[in-house]
Design a protein around this nucleic acid. Structure first.
Length: 574
DNA sequence: GCCGTTTTCGGCCCGACTGTTTTCAGTCG
């Protein structure tokens, strides 16, 4: 049983307990544990083997025991039992907007309904309205919620969300009373996929902002409209929430609206311990008569009030950032401006759409000092991989261009196929002629874990392989990564000095944020590469930076923050 | 169910919007 499966069971337990109206804090404990397990870089099995389960924050004696039982018996007796009392269809109903645990409990108890389909039928037959708290409108909302549930894709890639958000922001910015506006929520935290899009606005006239927002051309439906908060569904089905506050609350509201929920709870708890109340309107010193506002316009007010420095949004997941803040050990996160070049792009020599010259000039426009052209190697025929002869020809073109440029260098590279047996597509003699070698797997995904792990490790042990591209091979929302022993790969990266790529292509974002700290501890270095197949895709670098920041990386962890001389020294090609 | 620089027991973030009510419960973020 792997991390995700165990996390899912705890999520289900939380859902069941909610329907049963159990202690909300007990429910919160299960959800927290589930989330923590989901985010763990190590296999929970290994942690269990080492007897360290209770060392994980949020996992105490009780849940640790349940994890042990799950690992040892693949089952959890307690779960099997409460599951019987609550049919699984009820859990699915919780996903219907406007249907929560109370409603589910009511329709199960009173109408013996156990599925979304059953609920739909009952609502259509108006069997619900007779119960207290229910009515015509509620029935309508449930039917609508069921329709939306069936239509909506779960989460969207970050770049899609960003386009939507920027578009809406540009329209809202035109409202004269808007003084400040910012993306918030998981998009601001740069999570790899986004559910709802959150936008915060400072304005003296919230009514005007709400009216403009709810009548934007892309709005399909108004879900809620109030003085400070409104929600809409836009075409494509996505939900967008905005909050409007006064400018002197913008900072604390931005902190609140950025989340994560777990981070906010921790921060507010610390506030209580310091005799403060922290909400979206400000930081308040608790007084006998009334509370005194001591901050609110700047986000840093929140952190300062509880004695810590500013924590960047990407770190706010309650994964240790609070402790690091209190102890003064927060990292100085990498920034996009730290990048000096891109070490994995394609040209029209293989499957890219632009010439080497065009890629180089686009890189210069973005302030880079170098770019590595890493066309595919010969066995990847579907992507027009280059053979040895073509490499020599391409080198001539690169030399010619390099003679032309000042303060910029094109590095000659390859995205090199790693065969199933770990052999490489080119011999060492050929690899020696290249500046950058990026090893990659594009075939044989279905091999078992040992095969995939050892093929990658073998490639890393080759002296000429500098970087491992998209190390786990996942495609977000489409394909899980290939089966590999990730801790072993991370360790080999540290041992051999082969950098791990953070592939910034929005569908990949691979290596994922949760592995970066662990890899860093093992001595690994990283390369943030776009894998661009056209000049516009060079802009994907920002998504790679988001991943790196979520993984607490600093600029010295990333080899393409080095100046060209240092980089070449580290690649062994100077 | 978790947790402890006041606690091993008694806390556990805080507020907005909707619908059904006539003061509030449920849902959501």
């Amino acid at each position: 049983m792997n991390n995700r499966e165990i996390a899912e069971i705890f999520h289900s337990i939380a859902d069941i307990l909610e329907i049963k109206s159990e202690n909300p804090f007990r429910i919160r404990a299960y959800r927290k544990a589930a989330q923590t397990i989901e985010d763990l870089p190590q296999s929970i099995k290994d942690i269990h083997t080492n007897g360290k389960l209770s060392d994980i924050p949020g996992i105490g004696e009780g849940i640790a025991g349940k994890i042990s039982e799950l690992i040892q018996t693949e089952k959890l007796k307690e779960y099997e039992e409460i599951r019987k009392s609550v049919p699984s269809g009820l859990l699915e109903m919780l996903n219907i907007s406007s249907v929560g645990p109370k409603t589910v409990a009511l329709i199960y108890k009173e109408l013996d309904i156990t599925s979304v389909e059953g609920l739909e039928k009952a609502v259509k037959d108006h069997k619900l309205a007779k119960f207290p708290g229910m009515g015509e409108k509620k029935e309508e909302n449930i039917l609508h919620g069921i329709k939306i549930l069936r239509e909506t894709k779960e989460r969207i890639p970050i770049y899609e969300a960003e386009v939507i958000a920027e578009n809406i922001i540009s329209l809202l910015r035109k409202v004269p009373t808007v003084q400040n506006i910012s993306i918030a929520g998981s998009l601001r935290r740069r999570r790899e996929t986004i559910g709802d899009i959150d936008i915060l606005i400072a304005s003296k006239n919230s009514e005007e902002v709400m009216n403009v927002f709810t009548t934007l051309p892309q709005v399909e439906e108004i879900l809620a409209k109030g003085n400070t908060r409104s929600s809409v569904r836009i075409d494509g089905g996505r939900q967008v929430d905005i909050r409007v506050v006064q400018e002197d609350s913008f900072g604390t509201a931005l902190h609140y609206f950025t989340g994560s929920k777990a981070h906010n709870i921790r921060i507010r708890e610390l506030g209580i311990k310091n005799n403060l109340k922290i909400n979206e309107y400000g930081v308040f010193k608790r007084g006998k008569e009334q509370d005194e506002k001591i901050g609110g316009s700047k986000e840093v007010d929140v952190f300062k009030s509880i004695g810590m420095p500013y924590i960047p949004p990407e770190m706010r997941e309650d994964r240790g950032e609070i402790e690091a803040g209190l102890s003064g050990t927060l990292p100085k996160l990498i920034k996009i401006d730290n990048l000096r070049g891109d070490l994995h792009v394609h040209s029209n020599w293989s499957d890219g759409t632009n010439s080497i010259e065009e890629m180089a000039e686009a890189a210069m426009e973005r302030g880079y000092r170098y770019i590595a052209i890493c066309d595919h190697s010969k066995s990847l025929k579907i992507a027009s991989g280059l053979d040895e002869k073509q490499l020599v020809e391409r080198q001539k073109e690169i030399n010619k261009l390099n003679n032309k440029y000042r303060n910029f260098q094109i590095l000659s590279g390859v995205e090199l196929e790693i065969h199933i047996n770990g052999e490489l597509d080119f011999s060492d003699d050929v690899l020696e002629t290249l500046d950058v070698v990026v090893g990659a797997i594009h075939t044989g995904f279905s091999q078992d874990e040992n095969v995939n792990t050892s093929r990658i490790i073998k490639a890393m042990e080759n002296n000429y392989v500098d970087i491992i591209a998209h190390p786990t091979g996942r495609l977000l929302g489409k394909r899980e990564g290939y089966k590999i022993d990730i801790p072993a790969i991370l360790k080999t990266a540290g041992d051999t000095g082969t950098a791990l790529e953070i592939n910034a292509f929005p569908e990949r974002l691979d290596l994922a944020d949760i592995y970066l700290q662990e890899a860093k501890e093992k001595g690994a270095k990283f390369a943030i590469n776009t894998d661009a197949h056209s000049i516009s895709q060079l802009d994907f670098a920002k998504f790679g930076i988001g991943v790196a920041r979520r993984g607490w990386l600093e600029k010295q962890d990333v080899i393409n923050c080095l100046d060209i001389d240092e980089l070449q020294k580290s690649l062994g090609t100077s």
